[in-house]
């Protein structure tokens, strides 16, 4: 079962490596941007369509 911490898009917090952000690049019809969503390192990523193994 893959976890978020194994993903290239996961960036852990220095002060608490069990927590971090999932950072993704998005290109919508009007603009391109990076987004960040807080996740835990242990989170199950099995169903995540954006998962990319480190």
């Amino acid at each position: 079962m893959p976890k978020c911490e194994e993903c290239r898009k996961f960036f852990s917090l220095e002060e608490d490596p069990k927590k971090g952000d999932c950072v993704q690049r998005v290109v919508d019809p009007r603009q391109a941007y990076y987004k960040a969503k807080p996740v835990t390192a242990e989170k199950d990523a099995a169903k995540c369509e954006s998962f990319e193994k480190k």
Binding site: Y33, K35, A36
Partner: peptide
């Protein structure tokens, strides 16, 4: 504020 997705536009 702690959990909502944030973004930075190019």
């Amino acid at each position: 504020l702690d959990n909502i997705t944030i973004f930075i536009t190019d």
